[in-house]
Design a protein around this nucleic acid. Sequence first.
RNA 1: GGAGAGGUGGCUGAGUGGUCGAAAGCGGCUUCCUGCUAAGAAGUUGUAUGGUCAAAAGCUGUACCGAGAGUUCGAAUCUCUCCCUCUCCGCCA
Length: 432
Amino acid sequence: MLDLKLIREETEQVEKALARRNGGFTIAPLLELDKDHRKVLADWEALNRRSNEISDLFKMGKAAKEEIEALRNETKEIKKRREELEQTKREIEEKFTLQQLSIPNTPDPAVPDGPDETANVEVKVWGELPKIVNPKHHYELGADLGVFDFERGVKLAESRFTVLMHMGARIERALMNFMLDMHGGKGYQEVFPPILVNRDCMIGTGQLPKFEGDFYKCVDDELYLVPTAEVPVTNLYRDEILEEANLPIYHCAYTPNFRREAGAAGKDTRGYIRQHQFNKVEIVKFALPESSEEEHEKLTRDAEAVLEALELPYRRVLLCAGDMGFCARKCYDLEVWFPAQDKYREISSCSNFGDFQARRANLRYRPADGGKPKYLHTLNGSGLAIGRTLAAILENGQQPDGSVKLPKALVPYLGGITHLQKQEKSSPVEAK
RNA sequence: GGAGAGGUGGCUGAGUGGUCGAAAGCGGCUUCCUGCUAAGAAGUUGUAUGGUCAAAAGCUGUACCGAGAGUUCGAAUCUCUCCCUCUCCGCCA
């Protein structure tokens, strides 16, 4: 959420910044509620003040006997009026909070204008595109090689759930370990958080209250299946005050992720690109405000390093204001090459949230000089989405004979296997 | 799931219905002292929000002792409900 003081004092600038996003966000209703709230608050406080005065009179035994009855009556009056005011106050506060939590972050000045992904700016291209004649889609290769079983995934759950079979399961697990090891080596401390989180977490990182329909929820327990490890990891230090000396903090985490993909009907219906459940290794940073810009560049590099180690061609794009997520102040997407689609597809999203999430989640640090606690900055990036990585490995590594050459970096994680061959007969079940 | 104990500031931990934003200790900050370090002495130190002020400081109002409701002129303190934590028992990978 945005700094209320900033909204009050630099209304115009905030409005301008928000106008760059899609969705017609405006802070006018919030300011209106703020005004109302302050008015009610002033009246309410005046009543409290008077009733405190009255009890002081009793306390000191100052109240003359003949006054006591009058004072008691006055208190009763105050109580009645206060209850009315409290009712109004509560209503305003509810609306205010909802408004406040529903306004997205302001884009960084460095973020380009634009309505959607067509206005994103390519800032970097890495790797040579493989030369493949009539490339097959990852899902075709995967079916041939016994990596995916889409039909049985649907049988077990519903559409957009997939079973990984045999080498598919092994590569997925290898990728998870490979990525965690890689980030661990760069100072990201590994964590394995709960996969179900409470509502406060979801509000803290900005998923709620705005996007209620996008997530899986356990109704009986008011718990949500995490849509990304960002949620539990960023909330690790919610309502805490960290020491400046301990910052920045780097974490990496593997979790499965669950998204309802509301509104994604018809998109990527085939294959392993868009699933309701997918695995991801996430990298998360808690940084000092003055260094978050630099940390963002480094974090993006750390995600890119995974693609490079896996020999996957990619590009980095700077998202335009209209394409950025709700909480982001600035965001780079990494897009990996899919030969059969003949295009780059998102595989990582690296964001700097500024203090936006920190305000929501009350994440603060105590400055080294002992001053008042300040909000820190949060950042995160996929490092990487594992399912899409697997798909990209299949497509980019496909050979004329139908096999798939696996990235060298992964071989030690696969017991020395260098190629994915067509399913051997010994396999108990042939995937469809 | 059953029984019991408990939730107080950055942390530990006192708290009699009014003198309690709250003892004490730790930690932090400032100053002093010892050649440095260690140790010591004194002082200071919660958060949010409003007013006063050009602004800061200062002064000052209000709220906050897990959450909500109640009793009372007045609640950290008494009552009720809920949430959470801990201990023991049961169950369980």
